[in-house]
Design a binder for these strands. Structure first.
Lengths: 272, 272
DNA sequence: CCTTAGTGCGTACGTTGTACCCGATTCTGA
DNA sequence: TCAGAATCGGGTACAACGTACGCACTAAGG
């Protein structure tokens, strides 16, 4: 893969930087290319024609509210337009399609993550706070995993600040770390948080869908079919957990347990 | 949450077991209730009327193939029926709706995970193998995260064997562990694997969508807009990674790095 | 034999995303 | 000041989706 040396890449990036600066200057006051790759280039428009009735922020907020209330499937162009009091097709003045709506929603959700102004003294404390913020975001917006998976992990502008916060926490440990190891470690923590939150959401949504309010309700409803399988004796350890487990419905405890495992493993691996 | 004692729960589970056994006996040869909760109760049918033209296995395999070739959105009832050479509505003789198709697909994918017959001597080796199998499943079927998120983590029968394999590996460490900690540890590892695989898929799909074949292509395409942000100096650590990083496109390395972190952290936390 | 549960198939409906056209509005260049 | 261009909000129309429903037929049980 990486056939070019780090020097080559560094040189090319400097080249891009100057190219970009030149392009930026030349594009000043000109019309934009009609086929921008992302919606973020559209956010500011030339002040020609009537004043737009909406802002992208209003659209994003309304879409997030819709999804929070009734799930991601409830976010249709028609429902969104109705909530914003515009015609359905009027939305297409602001976005090029539904994917742009998804992008706006993701950016808004990620933007809710509050990042500390200054670095923590302890990198673990920084990650605990960051992980808690991310987990809170997922639990507030249970449609997020579905959206991220459906859009194949698009990166919103606000995501950059979160990534930077993770890397910066690892950059603050006193000794110099390899950048690749830093990114891999931060990525591993993020992967755990996302996977764990997704599991918690899945359980929570399953409970809501079936009208269960506690773990015992779940057992009462899915018990017999599940036990039919367990009774065959093929899954002895799982059966023991279901019978003897006592923290099965404590998502918070499971999350913290796993997070401490990951943090401890990172510490040992990086020698920090 | 857990207001009932472990004894209460254990007693209730024994009660369910006997109830289920009684119900099973009585249901023998009778018609099933029309509103079964899951499709798995439908898999075997009474041999009345003409022989069905399809099996659930054929439906599941065809749906998986469709998704592998053209993405989850390509799995429509019409396309699936055409591939199976039946009328569109004919599928509804086998499933109650599209959710059942998704359930069959998930079960088929999870069924591809090969579990070792005997326990490994080293629990870490067992998890490495299991994690590799799961990762392979995700990379073969890049639509899986989308499906799991969309169905809010439904559990397929084949999933039970995978969960059991994880728990069994931790049950084989010589000393007796708390079942809750075992489940939390296995869940943390699984969460990491899923999150990591989802990230890898996202990157891979983004590359495919934009026609990039290497990391340098990505840089060339998204470089300028990205650098416009990085040039503002708000994300110094991220900028350093992009300039100096050399393992950015090595998903396999990142995955192994994170997995070893998690395994090491679990080992330290559980004292094994 | 007839009854009946199960079969494959086709039509039709409501909902979705969105392409396209319209007249009205407002800033800009002459 | 005043055309012209660019952009606005609104509405109609269409293809594709999931699926409710009804039809004629087949094969096993009494």
């Amino acid at each position: 893969m990486a056939e070019r040396s780090a020097d080559d890449r560094s040189r090319q990036i400097r080249e891009w930087l100057t190219n970009w600066a030149a392009a930026q200057h030349e594009q000043d006051g000109q019309s934009r290319t009609p086929d921008n790759q992302s919606i973020w280039e559209y956010l500011s428009r030339p002040p020609r024609g009537p004043r737009p009735a909406l802002t992208h922020n209003q659209i994003a907020t309304a879409a997030v509210q819709l999804a929070d209330e009734a799930g991601l499937d409830a976010v249709t162009m028609r429902a969104l337009a109705k909530r914003l009091d515009v015609a359905t097709m009027g939305l297409y003045r602001y976005v090029r399609g539904k994917d742009d709506i998804y992008a706006l929603m993701l950016n808004t959700a990620v933007g809710e993550i509050s990042l500390p102004d200054k670095h923590d003294d302890d990198w673990r404390a920084a990650f605990r706070r960051l992980a808690g913020e991310m987990r809170g975001m997922y639990l507030r917006h249970t449609w997020l995993p579905q959206l991220e998976a459906g859009t194949f992990g698009m990166i919103a502008p606000n995501s950059l600040a979160v990534i930077e916060a993770g890397l910066a926490a690892l950059d603050n440990v006193g000794r110099d770390l390899d950048v690749d190891e830093m990114m891999a470690a931060a990525g591993a923590i993020a992967a755990y948080v996302r996977g764990s939150a997704t599991s918690a959401i899945a359980r929570q949504e399953a409970y809501r869908r079936f009208g269960w309010s506690s773990d015992d309700d779940m057992r009462a409803a899915s018990g017999p079919p599940l036990l039919r399988v367990l009774a065959r004796g093929d899954y002895p350890t799982l059966a023991r957990y279901i019978v003897d487990g006592s923290n099965e419905d404590d998502d918070e405890w499971q999350f913290s347990f796993g997070l401490e495992c990951v943090l401890g493993g990172v510490a040992a691996r990086l020698g920090i």
